[in-house]
């Protein structure tokens, strides 16, 4: 394994004895790939991410992660009104000694990271006053400044409008392909996983999962089992693109059209 690769095998966790959330899960990705975790609410996505992050010890199984890991939490809220620069600077925590303060070089690295994300002009803007999409970019910049090899994101598009969802997906794609980071993200949107991920892990149940390349895993059959809702895989041309995506079928809603 080289830096940026990770693999987990036989992974299982139970908060209470014998009350398993998941067992025997397996997944892997190599540097520069995107892995999407999909599962219904309560299936243990956040628990799995915490285990991969090292913040939680799994009840069984092993995780082998090579390199530095950075985390982008869901619905990021801070208790105090730090500026975007303050937030990004915190990414240098591993490089600043316990009793030391960040140096001007650390501040410069933080400003550079913000500029790479295209929000350098917002460095001194209070984090609270930024939109959801801008906040996600600040947290991405924090991952860059930490010089992380693996980026873990917990439902990064959950609270965003379509425009910002698109912006975040483009950034996930760019961080993996251009910055050569390994990205793991959880999502409730199979079409997001289909758009950017190379690998997918479907959390179907306690002992049941599907893991592998997106094309093999995100099948109509698997998704029906996962969500109890049919999802149609569609292919169509849009301008000069050949688009392949997943569309949910809300069978019992008002605007259905009978044959």
């Amino acid at each position: 394994m080289s830096t940026g690769d990770f693999i987990f095998t036989g992974l299982g966790h139970a908060y209470l004895k014998d009350n398993w959330i998941f067992r025997n899960y397996r997944g892997e990705a190599v540097r520069g790939q995107v892995l999407a975790l999909l599962g219904p609410n309560g299936s243990g996505k956040t628990t799995l991410l915490k285990i991969l992050l090292g913040a939680l010890t799994p009840s069984e199984g092993s995780v082998n992660i090579q390199g530095q890991v950075a985390f982008v939490p869901q619905l990021f809220q801070v208790a105090f009104d730090y500026t975007a620069l303050d937030m990004v600077l915190m990414g240098r925590a591993k490089k600043v000694g316990l009793f030391s303060q960040p140096t001007p070089a650390d501040e410069e690295a933080a400003i550079n990271a913000l500029e790479r994300m295209g929000i350098g002009h917002m460095a001194y803007r209070p984090f609270h006053e930024m939109s959801g999409g801008q906040r996600q970019l600040v947290i991405f910049a924090r991952a860059l400044v930490a010089e992380a090899d693996i980026l873990i994101l917990d439902e990064p598009t959950s609270a965003l409008d379509l425009k910002n969802q698109n912006g975040i997906l483009e950034w996930i794609d760019r961080l993996a392909r251009r910055e050569n980071l390994t990205v793991i993200f959880s999502t409730h949107h199979p079409h997001h996983a289909y758009a950017v991920a190379d690998q997918a892990l479907l959390m179907l149940g306690e002992n049941d999962f599907e893991s592998g390349p997106v094309g093999d895993v995100l099948t109509e059959k698997n998704l029906l089992q996962l969500y109890g809702l049919p999802l149609k895989r569609l292919t169509f041309d849009y301008e000069d693109l050949n688009v392949e995506t997943l569309v949910p079928v809300f069978r019992n809603c008002k605007r259905r059209k009978a044959n």
Binding site: L53, G54, A55, A70, F71, P73, M90, A93, K94, A146
Partner: peptide, 8 residues
């Protein structure tokens, strides 16, 4: 806790 831990 989680975010600070993730930052090292």
């Amino acid at each position: 806790n989680v975010d600070a831990f993730a930052l090292g």
